[in-house]
């Protein structure tokens, strides 16, 4: 490259970040992976309704989002799949006002329709040689899954070592719930444990569901909060308010979660 062109290329490169950092722009929503469908729909709806509103989503395991926010990622809204993750953010004074529970979720066992017959009921999860995929214990759904298995162990009828026998079948500890669903959807795992809301219309064709009785199930609380120092405070507030509104709650329920507005 000739010097002039080289210098020009440099000028362009240096100018890029400046333009990207401009004011305005979308409100940045950091949300648990299990909220993907509900929030994407809510974002599109608000964008049509509120002039100038645009949302940019970062979906990942809640624990991953906590790290990003605490380490200074520019988030405007945080919605977690458990109180602990929200607590880690709120504990650093990073939430603008107290977090509010806006949704709940419960666990289900999912199985691939492509390879049926291996898991038909909860007892089958302990069958030797089964390939079970769970979320890692650091992910809220992973912790809930293990809690649920312990409850089943002490329930009688499953055997006191049920949780341990199931644990031996775990072939992978995924970093978020959507990765659990993907492995089951592709037929690589015989079963997985996910939220009921993860069995979306898009995966329903490939994934079968085994419900878990409420007595053993773990109900996950989803808190939401605006992040301190948000540069899009009004839009962030509007997003949170919408999720708590009657309409937002209906949207949440339509996406397989349980409503929980106070």
């Amino acid at each position: 490259m000739r010097p002039k062109q080289f210098a020009l290329a440099w000028a362009v490169l240096l100018a890029l970040p400046a333009s990207a950092g401009a004011q305005g722009g979308p409100v940045s929503v950091f949300a648990a992976a299990s909220l993907k469908d509900a929030f994407t729909e809510a974002g599109a709806l608000l964008a049509r309704r509120r002039p100038g509103f645009a949302a940019r989503f970062n979906f990942a395991g809640s624990q991953q989002l906590v790290l990003q926010i605490v380490e200074g990622a520019e988030a405007d809204v945080f919605a977690a799949a458990d109180q602990r993750s929200m607590g880690a953010v709120a504990g650093k004074g990073l939430t603008d006002g107290a977090p509010v529970i806006f949704a709940r979720n419960r666990l289900v066992v999912i199985t691939p329709r492509a390879a049926p017959g291996r898991v038909d009921r909860l007892q089958d999860l302990a069958r030797p040689g089964l390939k079970l995929v769970l979320a890692a214990e650091v992910v809220p759904v992973g912790r809930y899954s293990r809690e649920m298995l312990r409850k089943l162990s002490s329930a009688g009828g499953f055997g006191a070592d049920f949780a341990a026998r199931v644990q031996r079948n775990v072939v992978s500890e995924e970093e978020n719930v959507k990765a659990v669903v993907a492995k089951v959807q592709l037929g690589e795992a015989d079963a997985g444990i996910a939220y009921v809301s993860d069995v979306t219309p898009a995966v329903r064709g490939a994934v079968g569901v085994i419900p878990i009785p409420d007595a053993y199930n773990v109900i996950a609380d989803y808190p939401i909060a605006v992040i301190t120092g948000s540069r899009h405070r009004d839009d962030a507030r509007a997003f949170v308010d919408f999720m708590l509104s009657a309409e937002g709650q209906r949207l949440i329920e339509r996406n397989g979660l349980l409503g929980a507005a106070p």
Binding site: V133, A136, V138, V170, V171, S172, E173, E174, E175
Partner: peptide, 18 residues
Amino acid sequence: GNLPGVTQTMPLAVYIAL
């Protein structure tokens, strides 16, 4: 996948430990 001792290499362990 990610399973300690079987498939959890250092980069995966870093990610989970984070």
